[in-house]
């Protein structure tokens, strides 16, 4: 503490960067550059918002899940997402930002969340596709983030990855059941893959060359692998999985490249990505409006908690007097 004060800004930056280069974690009470703090708050809160907003498209099917088992599984999954949002908000709060500020930024549209959750869940197969593809893509990203340089974020990621392992498998299991079903069920599953494949690839963000925050984030080791590297990893692992379903991915350019040792794939529609990110996705307004509504409708619960606590305290004070 005292030695931080004696050091110049340049020395502090040097010590900070050498810690990171040395694969040491940065912890909440350490000195850190303002840019690092801001960048982390942006990324962690965006991640937290995604977990919480992501509860909506899946929650849409809880009452209509085809069996009691599927309903229980979906409930458990949506419950996990809420928990993951909490872990991440708490990690962001260690950087000196309050929960109220984070929620306000989400509700005003200032903060972003994963654009994938602005797409509607039209059929039961979408619940399968989300678990398998969307959570699958999220896991590829989160496994990499277990090695992020900020201690609380890295520890949150370890916990989330451990809990998340069932999400992708339950999604794939839904797709597997549909793929072995009748023609209508197979068509429903294929339609869902067709709609969710490209938005899943968009989850990794812009190409490395066009990613606004990437360079600095890599130097600070907030991100450990680039958007394009992670996207490639996801494509490579998914091709085999879609073959087992005996279905296809909606990309005529998808083919194995022997020279690269990876699958080549077509170009993403970046105009759609931008539209969806800036609030023009099919359900963008609905998602935020629902969050605001749920928050406002929960006000009486928070009031009741405060009133109860006040009452308890006054009773305790009376007993002590």
């Amino acid at each position: 503490m005292s030695d931080s004060k004696a050091m110049t800004e340049a020395e502090l930056i040097e010590r900070f960067q050498s810690r990171i280069d040395d694969e040491q974690k940065i912890e909440p009470k350490d000195w850190m550059p303002e840019g690092y703090r801001k960048n982390l708050i942006r990324q962690i809160s965006q991640h937290a918002h995604s977990e919480v907003i992501g509860m909506q498209p899946e929650g849409n099917w809880i009452t209509r899940a085809p069996t009691l088992r599927r309903k229980a599984i979906l409930l458990a999954k949506v419950q996990d997402e809420g928990g993951h949002g909490l872990y991440l908000y708490s990690a962001a709060e260690t950087l000196g930002v309050s929960r109220e500020e984070l929620i306000a930024a989400l509700q005003s549209g200032e903060a972003k969340y994963a654009s994938i959750f602005n797409y509607p869940t039209l059929t039961w197969a979408d619940i399968g596709a989300i678990g398998w593809l969307v959570d699958g893509a999220a896991i590829v990203n989160q496994v990499s983030l277990q090695r992020t340089s900020y201690g609380p974020y890295a520890r949150g990621m370890v916990r989330i990855c451990k809990e998340e392992s069932f999400h992708q498998r339950q999604g794939y299991e839904i797709m597997l059941a549909l793929s072995r079903g009748n023609e209508a069920q197979r068509a429903m599953a294929q339609d869902s893959i067709n709609r969710f494949w490209w938005p899943s690839l968009m989850m990794f963000g812009p190409h490395d060359a066009e990613s606004a925050h990437s360079g600095q984030s890599m130097k600070w080791k907030i991100k450990r692998q680039s958007n394009d590297e992670l996207r490639q990893k996801f494509v490579d692992q998914t091709v085999k999985q879609v073959e087992v379903l005996d279905m296809t991915l909606p990309d005529p350019d998808l083919k194995w490249n022997e020279g690269r040792g990876h699958y080549d794939f077509g170009e993403i529609d970046w105009e759609e990505f931008k539209r969806s990110m800036s609030g023009g996705g099919p359900c963008s307004r609905q998602r935020v409006a629902h969050h605001v509504k749920a928050h406002e409708e929960g006000a009486w619960v928070r009031e009741a908690l405060r009133a109860y606590q006040k009452k308890q305290k006054s009773q305790a004070d009376k007993a002590a007097a």
């Binding site: 229980a72 599984i73 069932f166 498998r169 339950q170 794939y172 299991e173 597997l176």
Partner: peptide
């Protein structure tokens, strides 16, 4: 709630 565990899901 065994379905909260990844091992609950049997895949090919």
């Amino acid at each position: 709630k065994p379905y909260r565990h990844a091992t609950h899901y049997v895949l090919p």
